[in-house]
Design a protein around this nucleic acid. Structure first.
Lengths: 142, 142
DNA sequence: GTAGAGCTTGACGCGGGCGTCAGGGCAAGG
DNA sequence: CCTTGCCCTGACGCCCGCGTCAAGCTCTAC
């Protein structure tokens, strides 16, 4: 099959396939015209790459999986190098999720604090003297 | 104070300050030499920007906070526009964390499955006939 | 005078994964 | 013959927050 068909069947683009080839991930045979030719096994490799990409793996991180499949193994993760990538990724994910959780908490606290301050200001304005000049920057107090 | 001192006091670089100025975020006065001149209030703005950057806010997202401070408010998040940014960011963080958690779970399952398969293969190899040829790709089974 | 530190603007590089345009080829169908 | 559709290579663009180099100016100290 030619590049357009493979791209369509994998839900990607010809540009992407040429890019993968340029990175040495998915080399292609050529027919007489110089056109790239692919077969079903290439589709499998490509699907493996795409799945991992969807998981947020970098292209280089998919390489062990691809090479594992190309070596004849039934799954891309049948090889130790692939498992290593899994483990590394798990660690990165855990770290990242923890960091994002901490940031989320911080931002949540800031928001709560700032909202409380605004309420306090409003109460001040309602009680003692004149209303405090409100911030005019975008949005308004709703 | 001049750009180098401000950068040092904020723990950043002169390049970064010039970049912020080019984005209109932190404009600077000039003295006779054409050198940029800053004061303490600029340091406050800069610290606000840096704090938000460390939280993963984009530069544009820090703008409401900076303008809020410049408008004379005591905190960068004293204005509704800033609160909106907080809320939006919280939503983005929640979404992202949830997505990453889902990916983490997927990857974890894949890893468990692949490891189980390898163990099964090893057991097969130990029992019936000859050992199955091991995958030679990097790392080894540890 | 001269060396050095610090300042100026301008412009390119980077990382990742492509999108998109430019310019051209080849085969089939009307 | 000409169009249509698919293919080819090469190269620039994008996003973002700067790093880094180039070439030149100013001010201070010795």
């Amino acid at each position: 099959m030619r590049i357009g068909e493979l791209a369509a069947r994998a839900g990607t683009t010809t540009r992407t396939l040429r890019y993968y080839e340029s990175r040495g991930l998915l080399p292609a045979r050529r027919n007489g015209n110089g056109h790239r030719t692919y077969d079903e096994s290439d589709l499998r490799l490509l699907r493996q790459i795409r799945t991992l990409q969807d998981f947020g793996f970098g292209l280089e991180e998919t390489r062990p999986f691809v090479e594992c499949l190309r070596a004849g193994h039934p799954e891309g993760d049948s090889c130790p190098a692939s498992l290593q990538v899994y483990r590394r990724k798990l660690g990165e994910l855990d770290t990242l999720i923890a960091e994002l959780g901490a940031v989320r908490e911080q931002v949540g606290r800031q928001l709560a604090r700032a909202e409380a301050a605004r309420v306090a200001l409003a109460a001040d304005a309602a009680v003692p003297g004149g209303p405090v000049p409100e911030c005019e920057l975008g949005g308004g107090p709703r």
